[in-house]
Amino acid sequence: MLNVYLSGEIHTDWREQITEGASDLPISFDGPVTDHGASDDCGVAILGAEENPFWHDHKGAKVNAIRTRMGIEQADVVVVRFGEKYKQWNAAFDAGYAAALGKSLIVLHAPEHRHALKEVDGAALAVAETPEQVVQILRYVLTGKLPA
Rank of each mutant, 00 (worst) to 15 (best):
I10K: 01
H113T: 13
I27Y: 04
A92S: 11
K62C: 07
H36R: 12
G83T: 02
I106C: 00
A61F: 09
A98H: 04
W89A: 06
T34W: 13
E84N: 13
H56D: 01
R69K: 05
V44M: 03
G96Q: 11
G96V: 05
V79A: 02
K62G: 04
S23Y: 04
V107D: 01
D30S: 13
R114A: 11
I18C: 11
I27A: 01
D30G: 13
F29K: 11
L25S: 05
I66Y: 00
I106K: 01
P111F: 09
H36Q: 09
E51A: 15
S39T: 11
A98G: 02
G60Q: 00
D35F: 05
K87T: 08
D94P: 04
V77F: 10
L6A: 04
S39D: 08
G102E: 12
A95G: 02
F54I: 11
S28F: 15
E16I: 09
P53F: 12
T12G: 15
S23G: 10
R15A: 08
A116D: 14
I66V: 08
A110D: 13
G31D: 00
T19C: 05
H58S: 04
D24F: 14
T68F: 12
S7H: 01
D40I: 00
Q17K: 15
E73K: 10
Y86P: 04
K87E: 06
S104M: 14
K85V: 15
H115N: 12
A110W: 09
K87A: 12
A38P: 01
A91R: 02
Q17G: 10
A95C: 06
R114G: 02
Y86C: 01
I106T: 00
G37M: 11
G43W: 02
V78F: 02
G60E: 00
T19L: 05
T68E: 13
I18H: 10
P32S: 14
G21A: 05
V33I: 11
H58W: 12
A38L: 14
Q88L: 13
S28M: 11
L105Y: 06
A100W: 11
A95N: 03
V44Q: 05
T19F: 05
P26S: 07
E50R: 10
W89D: 15
K85F: 06
A49D: 15
N52Y: 03
A110Y: 00
K62D: 08
G48R: 09
L105A: 05
E20T: 04
G60L: 00
A98K: 02
F29M: 12
T19P: 07
E51Q: 13
I106M: 07
P26Y: 02
N52A: 03
Y86N: 00
Y86F: 14
Y97I: 03
H11W: 09
A75W: 06
V63K: 00
S28T: 15
D35V: 08
L117P: 01
P53W: 10
F54N: 11
I106Q: 00
A22G: 02
A38K: 08
T19K: 15
L101T: 04
T12Q: 15
G102M: 10
F93E: 10
D57F: 14
T68H: 14
E84Y: 04
L6C: 01
V79F: 02
P26K: 05
A75I: 09
R69V: 03
H109K: 11
Y86T: 14
I10T: 15
V79E: 04
Q88N: 13
I27E: 10
H113R: 15
I72M: 12
A45K: 06
E50Y: 04
E50L: 10
A95R: 06
